[in-house]
């Protein structure tokens, strides 16, 4: 079991995390954030494994990852 937290105020909507997640749990929002970008949002959160591949690929360190140890 895992969980990610996306810092919406830092996300520039580049979309690289959406390609990193093998389970395709991340997509871009249709709403703009304070920076004027469409930030990443998660769907089907309960499926997240906490692999952290999305966070690794994020150039803005906007994703924190938590996992059951």
């Amino acid at each position: 079991m895992g969980r990610i937290e996306i810092d919406e105020t830092r996300c520039k909507g580049c979309g690289l995390c959406t390609t990193a997640c093998h389970l395709k749990l991340i997509s871009l929002s249709k709403e703009l954030n304070v920076l004027g970008f469409t930030p990443a949002v998660t769907t089907n959160r309960e499926k997240c494994t906490g692999c952290a591949l999305c966070a690794e690929l994020c150039p803005d360190v906007a994703i924190s990852v938590f996992k059951d140890k």
Partner: peptide, 12 residues
């Protein structure tokens, strides 16, 4: 849950 990915301390 334990945090497994976070910003490095050396990066502001």
């Amino acid at each position: 849950m334990q945090q497994v990915f976070k910003r490095p301390v050396s990066l502001k």
